[in-house]
Amino acid sequence: MQSILLFLYRLRAFLLFIFLEAIAIWLIVSYNSQQGSAFFNSANQLSGSVLTAQNNVAEYFSLATVNKNLVEKNAELLAELEKYQKPADSVFIELDSVLLHSFQFKGAKVINNSINLSQNFITLNKGANHGIKEGMGVFNEEGVIGRVKGVTRNFASVISILHTDLLISSKIASTEVFGSTKWDGKDSKYAKLLYVPRHVSIQKGDQVVTSGYNAVFPEGIPIGHVSEVKQGSDTNYLDITIELTADLSRVSYVYLVENNQEEELNELYQSNGISNE
């Protein structure tokens, strides 16, 4: 017995190494789910406040671009608003208010971002206290940014569209052909459009937008433009590369969208055994 203890004592450094390494691997595995706690990442209170302090300094460098984008978005919205001015001599039919208010929008600031790894995350300066919830869609005026993974009280962690596990239900705007957008981990400006059958004709430059099928994003938020269509090695599907409209290296302010009916929709899917992605 004593010699076993002595043996273990001599191996103590190695045993500690194995123990700590096991903790690290457990952390990797448990963190690698789509939805999860945001405690052990940059959304926790300590790192969140450090990043906020850093961002308070760094944001001055991007103010010019942010202002320019905001003015462009405002002009676009003003043009859109013009359509809803009631002409004097017409009758309007009100839609059911349940349908009108199915999406809610919120704004937040990006305080941490990465684009060079194969699984990138973004941290936002708003959290559960501001009404941010897990699973909300994130986009900015240029296009889709990602999806909320987890929230703490004051910060939120977002799976970036530049994450090799995130699928976004999308469609070609002009022809309504649908597929899933997924990043292939190579270039931060390009992603792949998967599951488009071979018989579909697709032109270079076609716009890809969100489909609205998986209830995370409303329909029609831009994702990218088709930049290359190849026959590819898969016998059923085309190999389509799209150029993302959102420049992930420069995101500073984002909008979050919540679908009030997502719960109901998911319930329907679940009761019928359909997985929603």
């Binding site: 190494f17 700590l20 390494e21 903790i23 690290a24 691997i25 457990w26 952390l27 990797i28 595995v29 963190y31 052990f40 990442n41 940059s42 926790n44 300590l46 790192s47 450090v50 990043l51 941490n112 990465s114 790894l117 699984q119 990138n120 995350f121 941290t123 962690s157």
Partner: peptide, 17 residues
């Protein structure tokens, strides 16, 4: 380092080795 890189455990595992 992992906390800020959002790569929980990966830096830890490599630096331990």
């Amino acid at each position: 380092v992992d906390l800020f890189y959002d790569t929980l455990g990966i830096h830890t595992a490599s630096i331990l080795a």
